[in-house]
């Protein structure tokens, strides 16, 4: 299994037949569908397509249960907005009235469209985070000539996230040993106690800055010499015909979606 940003993917997954840039580009391109199109048919199709991507990439679909609270929270939030703050033109056809609160059919229909749009984006982003590693993001950026200083800082940042998540767990264990366990608390108490974790994490970051910058400087890196570093990772990841095919297919598919969207009323 290969560890990715948010999970594990089998080493033999079909997704690794594609260059990291292709994966980044295709997901980036597909996110424009829900961002620009509200039509539930397109967003529903995108969700189905993403689930197919998950299955083809041999990613365990059980991971969706971790996101269930997010899906529910979003549904409740959007429905509440369109129930209590519906636009006037949406308040035409009453669907249900409970305790003085009336649900209007056009408002609820619109809320469901918005919900599908957000789910489409969510599914794509979850997929992206499950098939990419930190170094693959750096490879993808460097393959399109993003300046080394930017891709290097981003790579360092992505690795820092993993490091601080580990530190966060350590701090939590230390707090637990001192009888503070926020996992049992309600959301308000959790929020209030959060500072007990942020202060040590920030203190660790400050302490590590000198260690890291000394280590980097001792390898002859400086802001001035960072411009033309050899691109070792590019030699390990080369574009293949599958990448060109994948990118062309994604561009054509998106063009078809936007064409159809304008043709279908």
């Amino acid at each position: 299994m290969k560890r990715t940003l948010l999970g594990y993917v089998p080493e033999k997954s079909i997704v690794y037949n594609f260059h990291p840039f292709t994966r980044l580009f295709v997901v980036f391109l597909l996110t424009f569908v829900p961002l620009l199109i509200l039509n539930p048919a397109f967003n529903g199709a995108l969700i189905v397509l993403t689930v197919i991507f998950f299955a083809v990439s041999r990613i365990d679909l059980k991971i969706f249960r971790y996101y269930l609270p997010v899906f529910v929270l979003l549904f409740v939030f959007i429905t509440a907005i369109y129930t209590f703050f519906a636009e006037e033109e949406m308040m035409t056809e009453a669907l249900l009235s409970v305790g003085g609160v009336t649900l209007y059919r056009p408002a609820i229909n619109y809320a469901l469209k918005v919900y599908l749009r957000i789910l489409g984006v969510l599914f794509l982003t979850i997929y992206f985070l499950h098939v990419m590693t930190e170094s693959e993001i750096v490879v993808a950026l460097r393959s399109v000539k993003v300046p080394f200083v930017i891709s290097y800082t981003l790579g360092l940042s992505l690795r820092a996230i993993g490091m601080f998540l580990e530190d966060y767990r350590t701090v939590r264990e230390a707090e637990k040993a001192r009888a503070l366990d926020i996992s049992e608390m309600n959301i308000f108490k959790k929020a209030a106690k959060l500072i007990n974790y942020i202060v040590p994490l920030l203190a660790l970051a400050i302490r590590r800055t000198d260690e890291f910058s000394d280590a980097i400087s001792s390898r002859a890196f400086s802001l001035k010499t960072m411009k033309n570093r050899p691109n070792y990772l590019a030699r390990k990841n080369r574009f293949k015909w599958t990448d060109f095919a994948g990118i062309c297919l994604a561009v054509l598919a998106i063009a078809a979606v936007f064409y159809l969207h304008h043709r279908i009323p």
């Binding site: 959790k190 970051a205 910058s213």
Partner: peptide, 24 residues
């Protein structure tokens, strides 16, 4: 500006992301 500023930028991105992901 020096390499230490690049490092603190990266580390702040790391801490900030973790703080933003803590579930509350």
């Amino acid at each position: 500006p020096g390499i230490q500023h690049l490092v603190i930028t990266a580390l702040l991105i790391g801490v900030g992301t973790v703080a933003g992901m803590t579930g509350v």
